[in-house]
């Protein structure tokens, strides 16, 4: 085994100057580190976009939670999202699609009208945008990793309880414009992340 200078008592020599290879290595190392920092920043910004998407979902959850107990009281705004029997003319569409619809002239409140009002008038929901595309928030039936256009989209699902004794407690279906919202609804809010994978935000009563 070779003696170290300390062990052998050899006088300590001056450190040799850096060679061209040493300096090249240091420059390369600095470049690599800068690249890692740059890529890390990109990953961070992508992460921030996911956080913004989650915040959008949370804003929706908050609005649903706050609106849920109030919307069955008179004077709830926006009126298109109010619960209970709707007064005539509140919604543009009639409730029934069958022949009996002509018998009942009172139109029912639909999610379509509520969504339109929310996206137009109710803050902060009205100002929410998809951070990945920069466009207004988009709604999807479900997050699909094969469809990159769904990145940053929001998924609202309706949870319908199944009869007692069923294998599953409830079934899920996408909340669509034609859904009647006059009764209480159990909703699940999900957003799609940067890979269009679902991030479940919460289940709320509306």
């Amino acid at each position: 085994m070779t003696d170290t200078p300390e062990q052998s008592g050899v006088p300590l020599a001056l450190a040799p100057a850096l060679t061209l290879a040493d300096m090249s290595f240091l420059v390369f190392l600095a470049a690599i580190l800068m690249a890692v920092v740059w890529l890390g920043r990109i990953a961070y910004l992508e992460g921030v976009k996911t956080e913004v998407t989650k915040a959008s979902g949370e804003a929706w959850v908050q609005w649903f939670t706050e609106a849920s107990p109030k919307r069955f009281t008179p004077g709830f705004e926006p009126s298109s999202c109010a619960g209970g029997a709707s007064p005539a003319g509140t919604n543009g569409k009639s409730a029934g699609s069958d022949a009996g619809a002509s018998v009942n002239p009172v139109p029912e409140r639909l999610w379509e009208g509520c969504l339109e009002s929310l996206m137009k008038d109710v803050e902060p929901i009205a100002g929410l945008r998809n951070p990945f595309s920069g466009k207004p928030l988009m709604f999807a039936a479900k997050c699909d990793t094969d469809d990159r256009s769904l990145v940053g989209a929001m998924v609202l699902e309706k949870l319908t309880p199944t009869p007692p004794g069923s294998a599953v407690a409830y079934t899920t279906s996408s909340l669509v414009g034609a859904d009647i919202i006059e009764r209480k609804l159990q909703l699940r809010v999900t957003v799609c992340d940067k890979g269009a994978y679902p991030i479940r935000i919460a289940e709320v009563e509306f």
Partner: peptide, 10 residues
């Protein structure tokens, strides 16, 4: 530093 005095950077 003491043990490596006189040695190259590499």
């Amino acid at each position: 530093v003491k043990v490596n005095a006189g040695r190259t950077f590499r």
